[in-house]
């Protein structure tokens, strides 16, 4: 049990160090505002597409016996997204914030939290199911996330209540992250292997996304603004870290998921938001500050909430 607590902190600390470093560098003058904006743009247009491509491309999903887990995971993500799209408009008025909160609900930092958590609990037995979910979640996160952002962006741009489907689709398919995901799926399904040097180049570019994005969040971070966003942070964080995973866990247990499979689903739903949410929100005219705050505070709190879920489910004998 102690190991799952120290694991949670082990996952949180490096993220915090990078955010803190960004904050300090900004104060020391190494990260001017304009540069942070451009770093975000670089992550959005170049590094994140490479990362999404690489994650999907290198995931060796052998669906076979785990199709139940795959289907349940996909439905869970879509379900959370749908429910939050229905409920959030009642709680939040502004489009840019709705978009951010909706994305926050279903999008998790599966790679930095979910997978290590599964590995920590079950070793290789846990990593297997978790990585099956990784591929489908990477695809759904990006398609749903981009679609929601593009929808609200179009809505704001046109100033009308309804959104035309053509410009919406255009903006989704012009998105580099979507292109990266699609390309990876094509290569995977045709079983085309990238030559070694391209593989390396893509993975090197992909590696840039997370540290630079986290430092950008830190550089942009502003305590006064976070205080002003308190209400939205409460809605977003309680929904993301407690309510959504609790509901998914209950349904999953009823459906008969136990052990490593349940652990994989917990890793997928209970992990905090990832830096991608921030970059996408900032680049697509949503409330990027709020998205950044959700990542920062969500990451900090997740050390406790994830530990709580593991503790509870273990005591009940499900994990």
């Amino acid at each position: 049990m102690a190991s799952s607590f120290s694991f949670a902190f082990g996952a949180v600390l490096p993220i915090f160090m990078l955010v803190g470093l960004g904050y300090i560098l900004r104060r020391l003058g190494y990260f001017p505002e304009a540069f942070v904006t451009l770093i975000n743009k670089f992550c959005f247009e170049v590094a994140l597409p490479a990362l999404v491509f690489y994650n999907i491309y290198t995931s060796n999903t052998t669906i076979g016996q785990n199709s139940g887990l795959l289907i349940f995971g996909a439905l869970a993500i879509c379900g959370i997204a749908a429910v939050s799209l229905l409920i959030l408009p009642k709680l939040v008025k502004e489009s840019p914030r709705r978009a951010v909160l909706a994305q926050n609900m279903f999008r998790s930092n599966f790679i930095l939290f979910g997978i290590p958590m599964a590995a920590n609990m079950y070793g290789n037995d846990g990593v297997g199911p978790a990585s099956i979910l990784l591929a489908i979640s990477a695809i759904l996160y990006n398609i749903l996330g981009t679609a929601i952002m593009a929808y609200y962006q179009e809505k704001q741009r046109s100033g009308k209540k309804s959104v035309h489907i053509v410009p919406l689709l255009k903006s989704i398919f012009k998105n580099h992250i979507i292109i990266g995901a699609a390309l990876a799926l094509v290569l995977l399904s045709l079983q085309i292997q990238l030559p070694n040097f391209l593989d390396r180049t893509v993975s090197d570019v992909a590696k840039v996304a997370t540290p630079m994005g986290l430092m950008a969040v830190g550089a942009h971070f502003n305590f006064a603004r976070a205080k002003a966003d308190f209400r939205y942070l409460m809605i977003g964080l309680s929904g993301k870290l407690l309510i959504a995973p609790a509901i998914v866990m209950i349904i999953a247990i009823f459906c008969g998921f136990r052990g490593p499979l349940l652990g994989a689903l917990l890793g997928m739903t209970a992990s905090p938001g990832s830096i991608t949410s921030y970059v996408v929100a900032t680049s697509m005219d949503a409330d990027g500050d709020l998205a950044g705050e959700l990542v920062v505070f969500g990451t900090a709190l997740s050390a406790f909430t994830m530990f709580g879920f593991i503790f509870l489910l273990r005591s009940l004998g499900f994990l």
């Binding site: 160090m17 090197d204 590696k207 997370t210």
Partner: peptide, 20 residues
């Protein structure tokens, strides 16, 4: 360890962004 890890995270990025 986490201090070394963070320095390593930034170090891993260096040659890529420097060459770009």
């Amino acid at each position: 360890d986490f201090v070394v890890d963070v320095i390593g995270d930034i170090a891993d990025v260096t040659t890529t962004i420097a060459l770009i």
